[in-house]
Amino acid sequence: MNSDLILNFLIAHKLEASPIVTHFKMELVEKSPYKIYQNKQGMRLIISGTGYNNAVRAVTYLAEADKPRGPASAGWVNTGIAGHKTAGIGSLFFINKIVYKKTGEVYYPALNLVNGMSTGLITVDEPELYYPKDSVYDMEGAGFFKASMNFSSVEFIHSIKVISDNRAHPTQKITRDLIFDLMTRSCPQIQAFCKALMSQVMEFNRIASFGEIDLGLLNGLHFTATQRLQFQRYCQRYCALDRKEELESLGSSNWRSSKDLLNELAKNLE
């Protein structure tokens, strides 16, 4: 995994994923235990399989694989087909509330970047054939959101659902071609949203890494975990105070220990 990954797609089935993979020019980078695709623009896609638990496991798998790249955040998008009582086939919804029917757990995706229709989603463990509520129905959304919240801020976690079935067009009528067609037609809207999300994630990561200095440059000084945090905060402060040159000058001097350097950085700020 590289350090430039800024958006993760979670999609239940290969059929739903295929148009996204093609549209975003992704390539298969991992076959097992999950099929994972990736492109050069920082997007990655995992095929999770059906259901709440599979979604949890797939999100966790991707996030754990990212641990070595440090604390940089990524966006998370769950997309795919879903059902609705009345919404027309092909309607695209951004999800503003997710309820897991089995447990009643509730999540609220943010709408700060959304420019389109939004509605609630109910995640069920068995395909919903009657659509009792005026909501979108799927089988992964709640698991996806719950797991993603362990690794990212809620503002970066989104579900986008494309309606494939309703009371007039039940699940039995869904064909492979229909799935391909619905997801292909949704790609431009998904792309526009992802562009905004990725831009926000990049800005967030830029702020989070503000003032970061490569510790390796400091003549091999050893830093404890606490000292590392102290040093990074001093670096942020020097940069925020527009005193980066002083920081670089101090950093390039020969220090007997990291403690000496930290003391000098502190003293110089007083």
């Binding site: 503003n96 509330k97 609220y108 362990n150 801020s153 926000q200 702020i207």
Partner: peptide, 23 residues
């Protein structure tokens, strides 16, 4: 969007004040 109690949205973990302030 309906909710039971405002804390479900307002007090949850894993949210960012700075990001939310934009919208």
């Amino acid at each position: 969007i309906s909710c039971d109690r405002y804390g479900e949205v307002f007090n949850r973990n894993a949210q960012n004040f700075r990001l939310q302030k934009e919208a």
